[in-house]
Design a protein around this nucleic acid. Structure first.
Lengths: 159, 159
DNA sequence: CAAGTATGTAACTAGTCTGGTTACACTATG
DNA sequence: CATAGTGTAACCAGACTAGTTACATACTTG
């Protein structure tokens, strides 16, 4: 349970919502596809909602759906929605720290490691959800048509 | 104590060893500069040694020193030495998984997120330890000369 | 050889995070 | 009102980071 699978789950969720198009999906249905618990899904959907990527309808027939088409959602936006902290922690020192070199090294390290993280984020910002879905379509080959995704998966697992 | 400060510490350590040039530094001296415990430093130095970046001499007058000049050590090598796991965990599903879409989505996500991580690593591999040291020199301005680094910091904190 | 110095490593603790789970209040539909 | 969903709090388990103590081992010097 060590690694961080939240981003994988979040993109998985967004992808499913994209397939379902305007039909809202329940956290229960999504959780089955993701092999996890509805509450875990709701926690993630809550963050996506907070970032304006998703809109949620409560009550009977409710569920979540995307606010935009997948071409207009980048993986970077999904990553940001999760509010992860900095990838690398660079503790800074107080003025009284005995080693003068250390006090200068740390801000430099913070800059460099921040840049490294930015490279990763930049890559994610250049990949749209639609691109990911297209890759999935390619892997699926021709076994499914366009609309059979939601019919074949989301509908199945919601019953 | 949440974040991962190991990379920052490891680069800090390598930077100090570079300043000390051929004079071995003890984990005690480095720990003082890093504001942490000698054992923490030894754990990191152990990994750097395992990767061939550092060589260690035991006993009186012992300590660690770099095996190469800082121009020939990249931050990517230091990152790899720490043997961190994958940045993003992408759990895969068994063949019996109920949702057929999910089983196809996960390998795609693994690819995409792996690429994102690779972008970050690529940036680190293009930055040498010498470049970091140069940035530190620039921030220090002209208050210190070249050799006063090890004399001013490492030597001070080792006494 | 003996004493001192330094590493290597195991063991334990504390704090934090992710993920799983249960429980329950709230809300919208019909 | 009954049902279907979400939102959220609370708690547990597992894992990791960092700090610390303790001790065996190895090297150097006198």
């Amino acid at each position: 349970m060590a690694g961080n699978s939240r981003l994988a789950t979040a993109i998985h969720v967004a992808g499913m919502l994209s397939f379902a198009d305007s039909m809202p999906l329940t956290s229960e249905a999504i959780a089955q596809s993701c092999g996890t618990n509805p509450v875990v899904i709701r926690r993630i959907i809550g963050l996506l909602t907070k970032s304006g990527l998703v809109i949620v309808k409560k009550g009977t027939g409710g569920g979540a759906r995307l606010t935009r088409g997948p071409e207009y959602i980048t993986l970077g936006e999904i990553y940001d929605a999760l509010e992860e902290g900095a990838l690398f922690d660079v503790p800074q020192f107080e003025a009284e720290h005995p080693c003068p070199l250390a006090k200068v090294v740390r801000p430099v390290l913070a800059d460099v490691l921040n840049d490294a993280e930015r490279e990763m984020k930049h890559y994610l910002c250049e990949r749209s959800l639609a691109e990911v879905i297209e890759l999935v379509r390619l892997r699926l080959g021709s076994s499914f048509g366009d609309s059979s995704f939601s019919a074949g998966c989301a509908a199945d697992s919601s019953l």
